[in-house]
Simulated assay, not measured.
Amino acid sequence: MKVHIDTVDAPKAIGPYSQGVKMGNLIFTSGQLPIDPKTGIMAEDIREATQQSLDNVKAILEAAGASLSNVVKTTVFLRDMNDFTAMNEVYATYFPSNPPSRSAVQVARLPKDAVIEIEAVAAME
């Protein structure tokens, strides 16, 4: 059964999609922009933006009863691949051991002209 995940600790969806979906033992988060759910302000510095996007992913996972340790795959969308190193430095602090598989791509444009968007797939044991 597909379960919709919704939490006030991550930004509300800005379109017709769920913050996350749980299906069986899998959790899929929608791409998370670096928007602070409390203020609505979007971080523009790549380090702060990476942190906020991952905090949003974490909040959705926690609402589903999981954590970042359950993440098996992430996809990172960057506005500028020159931000890759700085993003990696922050990203590594969220996955200090046994990191998930990951793709990182530069895209032409992200919603709200964000500098980053991150989505994740997690597996519950």
Rank of each mutant, 00 (worst) to 15 (best):
62 E>F: 02
109 R>G: 04
20 G>L: 04
117 E>S: 15
109 R>P: 01
103 S>E: 15
81 M>L: 13
114 A>K: 11
90 V>H: 08
58 K>C: 08
54 L>D: 05
45 D>I: 09
99 P>H: 10
4 H>K: 13
31 G>P: 08
60 I>E: 03
66 A>I: 05
103 S>F: 12
124 M>D: 09
78 L>H: 04
19 Q>D: 06
9 D>A: 13
53 S>N: 02
17 Y>H: 12
83 D>S: 06
53 S>R: 02
19 Q>P: 01
70 N>I: 07
59 A>M: 06
20 G>F: 01
31 G>C: 11
11 P>T: 08
28 F>N: 01
83 D>W: 11
52 Q>F: 08
18 S>I: 00
117 E>F: 10
30 S>I: 06
92 A>N: 14
27 I>Y: 07
97 S>L: 09
117 E>I: 04
18 S>A: 09
39 T>K: 07
85 T>M: 12
55 D>Y: 12
93 T>E: 15
111 P>V: 11
29 T>S: 00
115 V>F: 02
78 L>A: 02
33 L>K: 04
101 S>C: 05
116 I>T: 03
73 K>H: 13
110 L>A: 04
108 A>H: 07
50 T>A: 09
61 L>V: 12
5 I>E: 03
27 I>E: 00
5 I>C: 02
115 V>M: 11
38 K>V: 09
55 D>F: 14
21 V>R: 01
11 P>V: 05
22 K>A: 03
47 R>M: 13
1 M>F: 06
76 V>C: 09
97 S>V: 14
112 K>R: 15
83 D>F: 14
121 V>N: 08
71 V>E: 08
99 P>T: 02
56 N>L: 10
45 D>H: 07
17 Y>G: 01
6 D>P: 00
43 A>G: 00
48 E>M: 10
116 I>P: 05
90 V>A: 00
102 R>H: 11
75 T>D: 15
33 L>G: 02
31 G>D: 15
41 I>K: 13
51 Q>R: 15
3 V>P: 02
89 E>P: 00
109 R>A: 14
37 P>D: 03
106 Q>W: 10
52 Q>A: 07
98 N>Q: 12
125 E>M: 14
76 V>G: 00
33 L>D: 01
40 G>Q: 12
52 Q>T: 10
112 K>N: 11
67 S>H: 09
69 S>T: 13
67 S>A: 07
80 D>A: 05
104 A>I: 15
92 A>R: 14
5 I>F: 06
56 N>M: 06
85 T>R: 12
16 P>N: 14
110 L>Y: 02
33 L>Y: 04
54 L>M: 15
105 V>L: 14
15 G>A: 14
72 V>I: 15
29 T>P: 01
51 Q>K: 15
94 Y>W: 05
82 N>P: 04
60 I>H: 02
25 N>K: 13
39 T>P: 12
48 E>V: 05
1 M>R: 05
47 R>K: 15
118 I>N: 01
84 F>V: 13
25 N>I: 07
108 A>K: 14
